[in-house]
Amino acid sequence: MRRKIPLIITFIIGVVLVTGYFVTRGPFNTLYESFSDYFAIITVFAFILGGGSLLKIHLKRVSNRSTDWPYSVVTLAGFLVTLVIGLFKVGNPDGMGGEILAAGSWLRFLFDGVYNPLSATMFSLLAFFVASASYRAFRARTKEATILLSAAMVILLGRTPVGAWLTAWMPEILGFLELPNLANWIMAWPNTAGQRAIMIGIALGVIATSLRIILGIERNYLGRRE
């Protein structure tokens, strides 16, 4: 029961959703519509599961006084305060019936004042590391690395006005070699070719894996056997 029922559920859902793509009427289509809607609803519970797991892990860290446990208190405080404000619409000028991120609401304040800078700055750190990595690791050691490096330099310069300025002296007949034109050409043709080869490869992989999952051959998602 622990493994067979999930396999049956996967098979039914998978077959209905694949068939519904091709058959646009009849009972299959009704099920297709419903399962598609249910799928979206169930994924919301994944957020709740994520929050629950976070709570469980950090409560454990605090109760065990694990290394750096005071920071777990920060996580728990941030989580619980935001959750209470969000779920009960605390401070929402329109009350429980108002829009969740209504102007002036406390959740909006948390989003704009706390979530926004934390999220944006965390990702902006990458600008520094990408520059440092470029200096330290981006070496023309081999022919392939040289091609990669050259393409990157053309794009870096060609996508800014500096590229146009650097190659403005070129005669009109060699206009296609001007950095902005070269950068656009790389994006439109060799980049498209490479990305398309990757895309086709991924598509074949996804198709094969999906088929294996629906037919119950691929079972890793069920975890270890108990």
Partner: peptide, 8 residues
């Protein structure tokens, strides 16, 4: 961009 090209 110019700085990163120079660094490379």
């Amino acid at each position: 961009h110019v700085l990163i090209v120079l660094l490379i």
